Simulated scan of single mutants.
Amino acid sequence: MNPLTPLLDRRSYSYSKLTYPGPSEEELKQLFDLVMTTPDHGNLKPWRFVVARGEEKMNKLAEVTLAMYKRQSPNGELKDEAYRAVEYLKKLPMMLFVMTDVDPDHKVSLWDQYLSAGAATQNIMNGLHLQGYGGLWYTFLANDEVKPLLGLKAEDQVAAAIAIGTPKPEFVKKIKRQSPNEYCFEWEGLGVPPTKLFS
């Protein structure tokens, strides 16, 4: 059996496809234990995590999100999709923010530190899948407007805002994946174009 099989079915689920329950306290601890295996040049741990969960906090987060949609609208008017997104957000059990916590004076480059935060995010996505949960790497809430809410320094970024819940059964299905053949190459030496790795 292919040892990677459990991860080959990982997929993202939109808000509307996620419901309660979310991860328990113990499952969150296990998830963050997995994060600690993330490649991290210099062992800096250049990431931090903030979890928003529970109906009251998710409603507050939905209000903040709606206000952000309004500010980013050219005329201040909102499309139906903005209202739908906010309503789905209210129904989520949890949102997990991944933030960078970089040291700009360290010999390890900022690029390396930012990449490590991205790798930590993917570890979370994989871990959620293995635990039986679904996640959506939501980019709208990963922007500069969120920084003050999370107490970030100017040089830090919100790497991800991950919507988390249990996938509704009717949406749990295999996805036909693209072949990796077009994206993988073998190095043939200096000055020689790489050749395809797989025929």
Rank of each mutant, 00 (worst) to 15 (best):
Y15A: 12
Y15R: 00
K17L: 00
K17I: 00
K17A: 00
L18V: 00
L18E: 00
L18F: 03
T19C: 02
Y20C: 01
Y20E: 10
Y20V: 07
P23Y: 01
P23E: 02
S24A: 01
S24H: 07
S24N: 08
S24E: 08
E25Q: 14
E26L: 10
E26C: 07
E27T: 06
E27H: 06
L28E: 14
L28Y: 14
Q30K: 14
Q30M: 15
L31K: 00
L31P: 07
L31S: 06
F32K: 06
D33Y: 12
D33F: 03
L34T: 09
V35Q: 04
T37V: 05
T37M: 09
T38H: 02
P39C: 11
P39S: 03
D40K: 06
D40V: 10
D40I: 09
G42W: 08
N43Y: 04
N43A: 11
N43W: 00
L44Y: 05
K45N: 11
K45G: 06
P46W: 08
P46G: 07
F49W: 14
F49A: 12
V50E: 15
V51A: 06
V51M: 02
A52P: 05
A52H: 04
A52T: 06
G54K: 11
E55Q: 15
E56W: 01
K57Y: 07
K57Q: 10
K57D: 05
K57T: 15
M58F: 05
M58D: 07
M58N: 13
N59R: 09
N59D: 15
N59S: 15
K60W: 02
K60S: 08
L61C: 00
L61P: 09
L61H: 10
A62F: 11
A62N: 10
A62E: 03
A62D: 09
E63Y: 08
V64M: 08
L66E: 15
